[in-house]
Nucleic acid binder design. Structure first.
Length: 457
RNA sequence: GUGGUUGUAGUUCAGUUGGUUAGAACGCCUGAUUGUGGUUCAGGAGGUCGUGGGUUCAAAUCCCAUCUUCCACCCCA
């Protein structure tokens, strides 16, 4: 049999111990903050019925769904003509399940299925991997974690404000101080599309305007024009391009421009109210910047939208995003449930922290002391000592085989174990053990109590 | 889905216009040192040159296909 080198699928990654320690640091930080804000945990299955997933992310999104082939004879429901009808038709016949694409849609599904048991407003957080059949590149993976927190069943803008508080708290715990929370409101974008006379073309408008900082004004105009926006509409857009200044200044300018649009005024008020709440919370620096060009792709947002980017990072894409959706559960038959949520992209946050060298030096997760294994008698005594040390919550291990001391010491060095404990014939006789500090090379004969004192210092 | 890019030892990489037995560093193993590590010294193992096909007297090197890596576009965390 030919031996082939094992590989992992494109866009997926293994997380070795050193990486996992850092990931857990991020994950634990996020989880702690979610729970402090009274969000409750939820997990949903990795695979969902395709009917739950399809049509929720736009036509592009459907392309990026991983479909799971029916088990058993997946061809049993097909015949030759199905192939001729094309792959989309065939897919529906041979695949009924798919990997989840995000955590929001499964959450909506959960809310609908459990509406009678849920007390609204319902605040839940969910930290699980999601999968997208995208082509991988910088900051983009096919399997990645999302950390979502959503509230459903309330329109209160305090939720939006609390999201901004949570983002600030998480970032500051992670040591990432230089970031920007861009916010906007879908209603404002709807209003602008209406005001320039292109009612209903909001989606195309959003996609184009979102790229303003990336491709520039000329190219945005070109793209709008290509998408059927009239010359007149595009020139009507000019005043909006001129909006600038601080968040307050931008809002003031927009108030003039949007005075004839009901929906625009509502959207603007939502932004103002959210910022007002932030002041009430007493947040000193909120990192919030109003950004009229922020649109975000997902089709279900209807109110405030937000996106977080790390400044001074080579990663230009967002590390956190979210917004309000008025009717997410509507597609599953539950109308009138408004929700707002956001999601931390752990994998991207990891990349940023790594690049900016912001990870704490030590995580205190490795072995504190290694017990050397001299011979059978020493080993037996070691097991007793291990039990005592572990009762004192000391991370410890014995080298499992009685090999050369050099090799055992080397093991301690490789794992950055700060202490080794030598339990040999002499030590057992004396009832004291040699504790060696691997950094300084010092070693002392100590009794168990003294050893525990040193190790728990 | 579109365009580009990458692949040689466990790892990071050299490898001339195609020409003997494909190299280095680090890592690994053994010994100097049978109860004391990091350092040093001596020695050793380790490769179907991503895979498959083609051109050639001769291919890591040239051509084709395929997979893989990374980057950009579309879109997104």
């Amino acid at each position: 049999m030919k031996i082939e080198k094992p590989t992992i699928p494109k866009g997926t990654r293994d997380f070795g111990p050193d990486i996992m320690l850092r990931r857990q640091f991020i994950l634990n930080t996020i989880r702690t903050v979610f729970e402090k804000f009274a969000y409750q945990p939820l997990e949903t299955p990795a695979i969902e019925n395709l009917s739950v997933l399809t049509g929720k992310y736009g036509s592009e999104g459907d392309q990026l769904l991983y479909k799971v082939l029916n088990s058993g004879d997946f061809l049993s429901k097909t015949d030759g003509s199905d192939i001729e009808k094309g792959y989309k038709h065939l897919t529906s016949k041979i695949s009924e399940k798919g990997l989840r694409y995000d955590l929001t849609v499964p959450f909506a599904r959960y809310v609908v299925m459990n509406q009678h048991a849920i007390t609204f407003p319902f605040k839940r957080y969910q930290i699980q991997p999601v999968w997208r059949a995208d082509r991988p590149q910088k900051g983009r993976y096919r399997e990645f974690y999302q950390c979502d927190a959503d509230v459903v069943g309330t329109n209160s803008l305090v939720c939006e404000a609390e999201i901004i508080l949570m983002i600030n708290e998480v970032m500051s715990h992670l040591g990432l101080m230089d970031f920007t929370i861009n916010i906007n409101n879908r209603k404002i974008l709807t209003a602008i599309t209406d005001l320039i006379g292109e009612h209903g073309k909001e989606a195309a408008f959003c996609v184009a305007i979102d790229k303003l900082d990336k491709i520039g004004r000329e190219n945005v105009i070109k793209e709008l024009s290509n998408n059927g926006f009239s010359q007149n509409a595009i020139s009507n857009l000019n005043p909006f391009f001129e909006i600038s200044g601080t968040t307050e200044e931008k809002i003031t300018q927009l108030e003039t421009h949007l005075k004839n649009s009901e929906v625009g005024k509502i959207g603007l008020n939502e932004v103002k109210q959210t910022i007002e709440y932030l002041k009430d919370f007493g947040l000193e620096k909120d990192h919030v910047e109003f950004d009229l060009t922020l649109a975000r792709g997902l089709s279900y947002y209807t109110g405030i939208i937000l996106e977080v980017k790390a400044n001074n990072s080579s990663l230009k894409s967002s590390i956190t995003g979210g917004g309000r959706y008025d009717n997410l559960t509507g597609v599953f038959g539950l109308e009138g449930v408004s929700g707002v949520g956001f999601s931390f992209g752990v994998d991207r946050i990891y990349d940023v922290l790594e690049e900016l060298n912001l990870f704490p030096k030590e995580f205190d997760a490795s072995t504190k002391v290694l017990l050397l294994n001299f011979d059978a008698v020493s080993f037996k005594e070691s097991l007793k000592v291990l039990g005592v040390l572990r009762k004192s919550n000391i991370k410890c291990e014995v080298y499992p085989e009685s090999v050369k001391i050099k090799k055992q010491m080397n093991y301690a060095n490789k794992k950055d174990v700060p202490f080794v404990l030598m339990i040999g014939e002499n030590e057992i006789k004396e009832g004291k053990y040699q504790l060696k500090n691997m950094d300084t090379g010092d070693q002392k004969m100590l009794n168990l109590k003294e050893i525990i004192d040193v190790l728990t210092m």
